[in-house]
Amino acid sequence: MATPWNSRGLLLLHELRMRGTLSAVAAARSYSASTVSHQLQQLEREVGLPLLEPEGRGLRLTAAGEAVARHAAQLLAAEEALRGELAALAPDAAPLRIAALQTSARTLIPRMLDALRDALPALRVEVIVTPPEHGLFETEAGGFDLAMAEQYPGHTRPHRAGLDRELLGRDPIRFAAGPASGIASLSDAREAAWVMEPEGTAARAWAVQQCRAAGFEPDIRYEATDLSAHLRLIAAGHAVGLIPGLAVAADEAEPRLVDLPGSPHREIFTSTRVSAQRLPGLRIARDALAEAFRSLPET
């Protein structure tokens, strides 16, 4: 009888295929790099074929390694689906881990937590506010069970293997300036100081494109991931920006809002692994987020 392959080695090979380096896998799993390397070497012996080969200073998967990693993903998904079915019988057995958008922390997340507490009081829920790029990647990798994400007009996000999507709603985006500002349109803001999210984010890319379409390169003097900081700078007259309605609903600052041509909006959606859909509380969390979004006052 063939010796069964060790499940930890399969998991680590799958992680290496996703994360790219042994050090990244070690950090994600709280192992030492030597432990990861030892487990992968053991898996190679069990499979009987080389799974990794040198590439520069790192390693890459061989053709056999790619094949084993793909099948490992399927095995891990089947195991997770079974765990979800069993966890439904004991919903306090494992936490529900959620990656949340910063703009949802004050508006949507409390409503979701209320619904989960009422339906499953024994369930431990863990929420981390993190950029959607990180949340989606870690949900695919198993670090989160549910991610909230956004996508801007013309900047759709890649569909990740094994993840589904459910639309929460469409969030209008408006130009925002200080109450005393005389700027009445986007094209009037060419000389203004701008606040935007950091480079590499979908929000930043979209905002810069809007300015360029209006005929100018924005003078970006302030960067922050926290949209509350954007709103405070704008309301105090120090900057202008493009602000989604969910951020306005979550903050006391009162900037002057101007509609943009075409009434653009970002789409807010939730995403989970298909294999995780039966985890206790997941359906309740998604429904509660959608209901909370629908009940928001129009901004």
Results as ranks from 00 to 15, higher is better:
E252T: 11
A213W: 10
R124F: 07
T35F: 11
S295N: 14
E150Q: 13
I109W: 10
F175H: 13
L11D: 02
L163I: 01
L231W: 14
G237E: 13
T272P: 04
I128C: 05
P4T: 08
A229R: 12
Q277N: 05
Q39A: 10
A147L: 01
A149L: 06
A72L: 04
A67F: 10
R294Q: 14
F175I: 05
T139D: 03
E223L: 12
T201Y: 04
R286H: 06
T270I: 14
P131N: 04
D226H: 13
L113C: 07
T272F: 01
V125G: 08
W206R: 02
R212T: 06
S32T: 11
R232M: 08
L246H: 10
R232W: 11
R70I: 04
G237V: 12
T201Q: 07
G9V: 03
L82C: 02
A90G: 07
M196L: 15
F269E: 02
A88C: 13
A236C: 08
R190Y: 08
L76Y: 07
T35M: 07
E53T: 05
G142E: 04
R8N: 06
D114Q: 15
H38T: 06
I220E: 13
R60K: 15
L120D: 02
T201N: 05
L16D: 01
E254T: 10
V248A: 14
P4A: 15
E150L: 14
L260I: 11
P172E: 03
S34L: 04
D118F: 09
A77C: 05
L227Y: 10
R204P: 11
M196I: 07
R45S: 09
L123V: 09
T3Y: 13
R190C: 09
R160F: 05
L296E: 11
P91N: 05
A81T: 09
V25E: 00
A235E: 13
R17T: 04
G48M: 03
P198C: 11
V68Q: 01
P95L: 12
R232L: 10
D145R: 01
E267Y: 01
A73N: 05
L52Y: 00
A285R: 00
T62M: 08
R221A: 15
S263M: 12
R294Y: 08
A73Q: 14
T103H: 11
A213Q: 15
L101E: 03
A63R: 15
D164L: 04
A33D: 11
A214G: 12
Y31R: 05
L22R: 00
I109D: 08
Q41Y: 06
S263V: 03
A72Y: 02
R160Y: 07
A93H: 06
G56P: 10
